[in-house]
Design a protein around this nucleic acid. Structure first.
Lengths: 230, 230
DNA sequence: CGATCTTTTGAAAGCTTTCAATCCAAGTGG
DNA sequence: CCACTTGGATTGAAAGCTTTCAAAAGATCG
């Protein structure tokens, strides 16, 4: 279904960072997923930490009536999970075809005990995660639809920059529904807001999964991102 | 200003958990704060991790036009900060008079290296923090005003339970403004929603800082909290 | 090329915000 | 001891933004 989307980002992960986990660690394997496969489910015991090798994954939380809050999108090089034993408080699902390296959490706590620096890296990762969430909470709680979309696009653009890709050309592997559930909006509002930004000349939308940023400054002003660490 | 509020919860922290940090660690001191004192500021280098001994603290993020998103409230026994060096991505401010034990982050990384289990505990703490944030994001993104307030009250009630206090009697040390900025609402909506819950017979409001939960089941249904770990 | 799913667009409804005014509790000073 | 001041909380009414419900337009795939 979204395979086509995936095929549109063959250049992704060009500047993939080095592996966070040594692949030779016992129990570590790579698994392949199709689009919309469930990686792990909310409430179930956490068994692994995952490193995205290819494709895109999202994590989310569901309410009993089906409302969904997507908490994050994970791209190649990203790590999913904290390594702390317990039940998952999120579900994770692939957006596209994906390959994930999975590390048993049992191995994690052993690693922490044997190599304290590894624990430090995990802690750094959790801290970065918390930072991202706090910015996202700002969006959900205090930004209007335009600002949320702008902020989202700026984040994607910065990710591109970090990975040595074009900051002005964005690929959206996720659907409008995923974006809506991430930003706390409806798909209609997401769509309308994209249209509005296009009409303002801030972005181009050659097709629904591709976005060209035409006025980065204006976008950044709309996003009003809190200043990142210098 | 809020001293009166503080004086209304003399029984707080009755079942305070044991100290997370050994007070004898070099550099660890206890500091006293008045209401609305800044503990640390967004963007500045992070210097300490704080343990709340007395009083209440909130963390928040500001936008350039002054909009504020409160990310959490911290009560006695709670830990603020991850211990990872870098700039604060949040500010922290006291809600009431407060005493905080502060631990230099330099001591933290030393502790992690010398006692890996300590790193594990910090990681657990960060993980719990992430879990709380993900539930809060659900509120901000997908719950309406009534559900957000209900969810907030249920959280406070559960905290009371964990600390051996009365689950049905809540003290709100924070102002309506703090609650509004936490829940992504305005003070008027917060106030109106409290009034509505009172009219429905779900809560009593003997005075603005005290809440009696009269129908916990109904409140829990309204909150539709995701199921906690059993 | 038809079938299906996603995206976009339109119009009305709804919930929250905004702007204003009042209420209330606590502290101050006469 | 009480009028006055002050800051927070509550209530009212209108405005605004997002959602909801519906339908059309596009894109993908067999």
């Amino acid at each position: 279904m979204l395979a086509t989307v995936t095929s549109r980002r063959p250049e992704a992960a060009a500047a993939k960072p080095q592996a966070m986990i040594n692949p030779a660690t016992p129990g570590v394997i790579v698994r392949s997923f199709r689009p919309h496969d469930l990686v792990f489910a909310q409430g179930q015991p956490q068994t692994h930490v995952y490193e995205v090798l290819d494709g895109v994954v999202c994590t989310y939380r569901l309410m009993s009536d089906g409302r969904r809050q997507v908490s994050g999108f994970y791209f190649p090089g990203d790590l999913i999970g904290t390594g702390v034993p317990g039940n998952n408080f999120l579900s994770a699902e692939t957006i596209s075809v994906a390959r994930l390296r999975q590390i048993p959490i049992s191995a994690i706590s052993d690693l922490i005990r044997s190599r304290p620096d590894f624990g430090l890296r995990l802690l750094e990762h959790a801290s970065l995660e918390l930072e991202g969430q706090s910015d996202h909470m700002m969006s959900l709680g205090r930004r209007n639809a335009t600002e949320r979309i702008a902020s989202f696009l700026v984040s994607l653009s910065r990710r591109n920059t970090r990975h040595g890709e074009d900051a002005g050309k964005l690929t959206l592997p996720m659907t409008r529904s995923d974006i809506a559930d991430f930003l706390g909006l409806t798909i209609e509002t997401v769509s309308r807001t994209f249209t509005q930004l296009r009409q303002w000349g801030v972005i181009d939308l050659p097709h629904p999964q591709s976005i060209i940023i035409r006025d980065m400054d204006r976008l950044a002003v709309l996003a009003d991102q809190a200043l990142e660490a210098a």
